[in-house]
């Protein structure tokens, strides 16, 4: 580890570097990258030859991941609440986490910002922050679990998404709420409707009783304690209610789309 640290270039984010490098790769190499060790690892042992090449391995893995989406949707209990914690359990400092440095986080002017609403809804009016702040809010102290494995307990306050969906006359029989964010390179993520209607899924405007700071997603983060962290979009600028699966920033790169916890 010590030796590895020396190899890191100061000021260069290694995750970004890898992502940029991956983008430069030709498509085939990029697809091979995902199955990585398959060629030399266990699969070679298993088959003794290249019967399973990395492309078909990736196809198989994608199919299993879709199957796992269905299994998780089946397991998901819309009435099961995520465990809550006392305020004393809150992780301090709560980690900033993104695929970019905190200085690159969107710097949004709350006065100009509006939440765009589109798709299968009756009222497509855009919402200002002042209008949203007037909606009923609730607070939760829950565990944020990152796809990487670490977790941190935080306190979020905001409006239940189910309430907002009712207010805008959304078709809640639709399959997804699809969020677009202001993060650089464009972040987006689909949220299945069952989870969107979960009582703890909120449009969070506050963290630890303060207006949501820039590092944690000002002006609005969708807090979903029944999902992994990357399914909790920050800096949200629009929501579309839709029956189409439109993919997402991380979902398109291979993270399981349901990613429930």
């Amino acid at each position: 580890m010590g030796r590895l640290r020396k190899l890191l270039i100061p000021g260069v984010d290694k995750k970004l570097l890898v992502r940029d490098a991956t983008r430069l790769m030709p498509d085939l190499t990029r697809r091979r990258f995902i199955s990585g060790g398959a060629s030399f690892g266990a699969l070679t042992l298993l088959t003794g030859c290249d019967v399973i090449d990395s492309d078909s391995a990736e196809e198989m893995l994608k199919k299993v991941s879709k199957f796992n989406d269905a299994v998780q949707a089946f397991i998901f209990n819309p009435h099961a609440l995520a465990p809550t914690f006392p305020e004393s359990a809150i992780t301090k400092p709560f980690p900033f986490n993104a695929y970019y440095e905190v200085d690159d986080a969107p710097d949004i002017d709350g006065k100009d910002w509006k939440l765009e609403v589109s798709g299968l809804v009756e009222n497509k009016k855009a919402w200002t922050l002042d209008e949203l702040y007037k909606l009923p809010q609730q607070k939760q102290v829950t565990r944020h679990i990152c796809v990487e494995g670490w977790s941190a307990i935080g306190s979020w306050t905001g409006t239940p998404l189910s309430y907002f969906l009712k207010v805008i006359g959304a078709d809640t029989t639709a399959k997804y709420c699809w969020f677009q964010c202001a993060d650089k390179d464009g972040y987006n993520s689909p949220l299945d409707m069952e989870t969107a209607l979960h009582p703890q899924t909120i449009m969070a405007f506050r963290f630890a009783d303060e207006i949501l700071p820039r590092a944690y997603g000002f002006p609005m983060k969708i807090r979903v304690p029944t999902k992994l962290g990357f399914k909790n979009p920050k800096y949200v600028i629009s929501m579309e209610v839709t029956n189409d699966y439109k993919g997402g920033y991380w979902e398109d790169q291979g993270y399981n789309s349901f990613s429930g916890s």
Partner: peptide, 16 residues
């Protein structure tokens, strides 16, 4: 000694 190339690939393998 790892499989998957990166976190996303490894998770696909692990959950398969």
């Amino acid at each position: 000694v790892t499989l998957g190339g990166w976190l996303g690939g490894a998770l696909l393998w692990h959950f398969a």
